[in-house]
């Protein structure tokens, strides 16, 4: 439906339009990372609040206001990302189901590593393979790093909250398909990351059911 040039140019125009929101987005990401690794009181709720906010920001700022100009599928993604923000708010903020007290677990470490990757490394992939730095895709503004970062947070949480995995995993498949159609070199990144997260989350879920911790 759109060319790779149009798709990536959208991020350039988006970044130019919303500057300096990138600083806030980076701040939110660093805040989430800090909250996950440091034992602050009620940090789960704070992480969930920030996470719900960035999903809403992507739903509105990216999908509704920009992506909708080139894709008829945008309204579905607006609702999908808004629904995920709602789910995170209910589960994580209202019900307090996202906690991070078992950071020593293998999946906890993997989750934090994945989040750090989404926040700091994933945005540089595009420019490193030849695209403009002005079109950098950032956590909290662009969908892919936001989704991957969220999967990192969910993986790092003490309990596997499957209801919060559905939309991010679906997005991994959708964005993989879009990028594959556009013949983007990183098309497999999100689907493979999503699959790895699913495997690790299943592993943790099974271990937790057997009463084992620290895994």
């Amino acid at each position: 439906m759109f060319s790779p040039e149009t798709y990536y140019r959208l991020f350039e125009l988006y970044n130019a339009d919303v500057w300096p929101t990138q600083v806030m987005a980076l701040g939110a990401g660093l805040g989430i990372a800090a909250l996950m690794v440091r034992g602050l009181h009620r940090r789960g709720r704070a992480v969930a609040t920030l996470l719900a906010a960035v999903w809403l920001a992507v739903a509105w700022g990216y999908f509704f206001e920009r992506y909708a100009t080139i894709s008829l599928a945008a309204p579905y993604f607006v609702w999908g990302f808004a629904a995920q923000a709602f789910l995170i708010a209910v589960s994580g903020v209202l019900l307090g189901r996202l906690t991070f007290d078992d950071a020593k677990a293998l999946t906890g470490k993997a989750g934090i590593a994945l989040f750090t990757f989404a926040l700091l490394i994933q945005p540089s992939i595009g420019p490193l393979i030849g695209r403009e730095w002005s079109g950098v895709e950032l956590f909290g503004l662009a969908p892919d790093p936001t989704v991957l970062g969220t999967l990192g947070v969910l993986l790092a949480a003490d309990r596997v909250r499957w209801e919060l995995f559905i939309i991010p995993i679906l997005w991994c498949a959708i964005t993989g398909t879009i990028l594959w159609v556009m013949k983007s070199p990183e098309a497999l990144l999100m689907p493979l990351a999503g699959l790895s997260v699913l495997i690790l989350a299943t592993y943790r879920s099974l271990k937790l059911r057997r009463g084992l911790v620290g895994i």
Partner: peptide
């Protein structure tokens, strides 16, 4: 198809 779908990009 595709070629004229350039959104609001003034340059495109």
């Amino acid at each position: 198809w595709i070629t004229f779908n350039v959104g609001n990009d003034p340059v495109a």
